[in-house]
């Protein structure tokens, strides 16, 4: 089980802020493929991953990163702080 969290328009498009996901995905990209296959709202949110960023256990990461040992995956658009 892994916690998956969504922010900003990704959260709005998927329709929830957080969920627990049963997965055997080896990498972030594998998890994205699994989620996208679930329902249209996921496929829409993940249609262009170049427009998204990912954090693993609250550290910015990459889509080819392994998920072994990771507890929380977050998907969000490029950040707009400051």
């Amino acid at each position: 089980m892994i916690d998956v969290v969504y922010f900003a328009w990704v959260r709005e498009r998927i329709g929830l802020p957080r969920e627990r996901v049963e997965t055997r995905a080896a990498t972030v990209a594998d998890l994205v493929a699994e989620l996208s296959a679930r329902e249209e709202r996921y496929a829409a949110a993940f249609a262009d991953i170049s427009a998204l960023r990912v954090a693993l256990d609250q550290e910015l990461s990459e889509f080819d990163a392994p998920l072994a040992g990771v507890r929380e995956v977050a998907f969000f658009p490029p950040m707009t702080g400051g």
């Binding site: 922010f7 900003a8 658009p77 490029p78 950040m79 707009t80 702080g81 400051g82």
Partner: peptide
């Protein structure tokens, strides 16, 4: 600090106007 806070601190801005709402693009 300012340069890094803009694109490496996890904040997302949404503008609210009478026309609706709009996420600010990076």
């Amino acid at each position: 600090l300012m340069d890094y806070l803009k694109s490496r601190a996890p904040f997302w801005k949404k503008e609210i106007s009478p026309d609706g709402t709009c996420w600010v693009a990076a």
